[in-house]
Design a protein around this nucleic acid. Sequence first.
DNA 1: TTGAAAGCGCTACCAT
DNA 2: ATGGTAGCGCTTTCAA
Lengths: 347, 347
Amino acid sequence: MTSDNMAPARRNRASAKQASMADVARQAGVSMITVSRMLRQPDLVTAETRRRIEEAMAEVGYVPNLVAGGLAATRTQVVAAIVPYIQHGVFADAVQGLSDALSPSKYCVLLGNTAESSEGEEAIVRTLLGHRPAGLVIQGANHSPATRQLLRKAQIPVVEMGTLPDEPIDCCVGYSNRQAAIAMTERLIAGGRRRIGFVGADPSQNDRHAQRLDGYRVALEAAGLDFDPRLVVRARFGIAQGREALAHLIAVEPKLDGLFCASDLWAAGAVYECTRRGIAVPDAIAIAGFNDQELAAEMVPSLTTIRVRRHEIGFVAGNLILARIEGSESGHKRIDVGFELIARESA
Amino acid sequence: MTSDNMAPARRNRASAKQASMADVARQAGVSMITVSRMLRQPDLVTAETRRRIEEAMAEVGYVPNLVAGGLAATRTQVVAAIVPYIQHGVFADAVQGLSDALSPSKYCVLLGNTAESSEGEEAIVRTLLGHRPAGLVIQGANHSPATRQLLRKAQIPVVEMGTLPDEPIDCCVGYSNRQAAIAMTERLIAGGRRRIGFVGADPSQNDRHAQRLDGYRVALEAAGLDFDPRLVVRARFGIAQGREALAHLIAVEPKLDGLFCASDLWAAGAVYECTRRGIAVPDAIAIAGFNDQELAAEMVPSLTTIRVRRHEIGFVAGNLILARIEGSESGHKRIDVGFELIARESA
DNA sequence: TTGAAAGCGCTACCAT
DNA sequence: ATGGTAGCGCTTTCAA
């Protein structure tokens, strides 16, 4: 029962080498090109021929070599996806959406993690481009000149996700991080908050967070409130970092009465820290998040946050790529999927 | 400044076609094979030649075609990774680990989502194998006979992750889900709990959860407690589903005093539901999770759970694959990374 | 509806 | 240390 690997050449080449298209053709008594055709445009082949080929494929255990196919056709069945960390739910959602859009067309996702560094990004873009993907999606839009150059020269559809740059490399699908941040900050202000903190990622490495910070600042100043750099915390992602941020901020500013976190993880951490310290949320401090991640709706108190349809962003990006590959050049080069302010208990 | 795409043939072929290795060779005044060598074994090339080639590569904007390389060498720089959903943090952690292990060697991850169905799994395995990956890692070990057959015939290293099957296809790296479940159930029992519920995924589709369910049952029976099928809930993943599960269970069994959730998400949902209903955790009901996901340590009350080093599992899997590719066939075919019971507040 | 020949861009193998 | 010659396994013309 375990004769798969070591079987001494049952039938044709049971173990020796992988079966090739030539083997299938021979077995079916047709030419290679007919096998190739039946795989890609079955309608052009007689039902009878098709049957014979299918039988032959099963017989020899044929798995088409997409590498050879990709080389011959000078186009692969692969789409590259570049995100800072696949481990972060926010990016994984988009990649899932991408994968879901691509799967019906048999395209696969080739993954690249940049670790949120621009050198890392350029290196990974280079490598992924070497695999000659049919298209590429990438998180954000603040790429180094070298990276932009590479992407342009690649002559494939490129989709920047999660933001709406003024000058996309090719296409983009996202929403206005700035407007979303403005909306949330305005809400906090409208709720009577005056000393509002901000937690975000390094704005020089993360353009989405840079825009959220910008929106926060704009909204404050529009309301005649001070933008106080001491109330701006730069953090690594994580719930624990949210706790720390809150601890830091109330030390710096005991009158803190509002907090806008550019990610739900930080907001959750801040809320938990308040809970532990007996600080009432939102009565003493209103805390808002960003992303509407799963725990936002479920935790106690639930999180007021910005909902972004991340799976949809990836899905739309995938369909954009497919449309471009198929040549239906479709006008839309800049798709705004919008955002939604979800008002819950925490703010 | 935007002349990348449309520039009318500056230098050599600025826009026409992608530069090939032949172009680089011509430009550098060497043969193709020397370029190839310099890319893969720079030591075998004179410093001077190297410099000329590097210059030429920059000049023509060369990005090596890994598809052609893969075909010629009959081995690619790609490792396939198959998980139920990349969107689930638990799987994304392992994929991140895999990617982190492979990156230094310039291997990329080709992603496949099975959506946790065996037909889906076979289809995605077929497609990924078509890309002739140098290795493949896959979550779990309950694959259909056809899938196992495909994987065997592929003649590449295969690593099954997250479990320790009796008969791995090739290698595996994981831990005993059964032992972990036994340990946690025993803890609940030792804490005086007598009516203990269980929440898990469909055991027929998810072997890890099947083993956790088994461990729960074994521990109950070893303690002389009834295994009551009414207290076993099968759920889809999610915090909300954990709330529902708790609601359902206390309706079925008002005397419920313990709950073992095979994922932290369910445990978190159950805890939140208790909080909302004013049920004291752990006093009235002890609730235990599984995975030690990020929120487990942070939420209030914090979650007693099983810690599994998921990133490490992926990382080890990646290194196993690399070792196999390099031929250092290394004996370890079955790596147990163990688990840890993390005692916190909820149980 | 089917087939023959010519590559796709690179690496392996053998020379030198 | 460098180069020439064959392919890798498919798809793309074109032809029948």
